[in-house]
Simulated assay, not measured.
Amino acid sequence: MVTKPKAIFLDMDGTILNHYNKVSRLTKQIIDELRDKGIYVFIATGRAVDEINELVPAGFQVDGIISSNGMAGYDGEKVIFEHSLALELVEKIIEKAREHKVYYELFPYGADRIALKQDRIFIEQEIRNPKPESVGLNEWLSRQQAIKEEIDWKDQIEENKFSKFYFFARTKEHINRWKDELENIKQDIDFTTSISSDHNVEVMVADVNKATGIKEMLRYFNLSEEETLAIGDSNNDLPMFQFVDYAVAMKNASDQVKEIVDDVTEFTCDDDGVYHYLKSTIVAETIKNT
């Protein structure tokens, strides 16, 4: 394995975030320790960058953030790269989402996520209690929070730069039908889809994913593609896993994800799996070799 990587890329949901959508102080501690040893640590998440601050402990710092599954990259407040969905595609997808009555959140850059007022009834219906058994707790809590406080309900789309579309359905059958519809839309306008659970799908610019985001981040920091390590748990991490030198899946990842990686953590995201893995491998090896 890479005993002292030059750069580490960490997914959020199901990885450094527990199922209550919080990053622990132990995870912050290990990231600080790695950075003190000269190792670059980056977030590579499907979440929009504006979502991150409320999920991490005070003083949490990394070298850079890749957000929205590779759509944007940041060095602190500085924008390294940004891709944007075309307004034509956004409008077409909203029209089709309305026909299918599928929950959606549209993420403009620099503004709150939005949905249209005329779609509010069917969107809220998808988040009605009780929680479906197959929906992950972290995803369910995020949707309830979005409905309660975070979605800006609009009469019409006013922005023109968008980082991603997120879609959710309370049944797998519903979201699978929507995925099929997205494939139909792709025949007219190309784009990339990404999946992080059995109940969601996200839309980004064509040929954009976490791996393309990592390439741009490495270029910006003048780092080589060698001796890179990534930790994640779901399907939207697969491009990242295929790109880095050493890929690690969380214990709570699916068997499909675990089959393609180099290693698996001993503990889940709820038991500080990232902390224990990095402490027992990277940090321990670094100390041994000094």
Rank of each mutant, 00 (worst) to 15 (best):
K148S: 12
L89T: 11
D272I: 00
Y275K: 04
N129M: 13
E158L: 11
E225A: 08
A97K: 00
E183C: 11
M217Y: 02
Y246H: 11
T268G: 06
P239N: 07
E133T: 03
K22G: 10
A253F: 05
V274W: 06
V90D: 09
G59C: 01
N236W: 14
I175K: 01
W178H: 02
E133H: 03
Q125G: 15
A111Q: 12
V49R: 03
V79H: 01
G110T: 02
E124H: 13
E91T: 08
K117W: 04
I93H: 04
I157G: 00
I93N: 03
K117N: 11
E183L: 13
T193R: 06
S254N: 07
A58P: 08
Q256D: 15
E82H: 06
A111R: 14
S84G: 05
S68C: 04
I121C: 09
I43A: 04
I214N: 02
D233G: 11
G38D: 08
D271T: 09
T27P: 14
R113C: 12
V205P: 09
T192V: 04
S234D: 06
K172W: 01
H19Q: 08
K28N: 04
N18I: 00
V201N: 01
A7M: 01
Y277E: 01
D50Q: 12
I31W: 15
A146I: 00
V208H: 12
L55F: 14
E173P: 12
D207E: 11
V203Q: 03
D262L: 06
L26Q: 11
F122Y: 10
E126C: 01
V264W: 10
I43E: 05
Y246L: 09
R25D: 15
V208E: 03
P108L: 12
F81V: 06
E105V: 08
K288S: 10
G73P: 10
G136E: 08
E105P: 15
S224P: 03
D198I: 03
A115I: 09
Q144E: 10
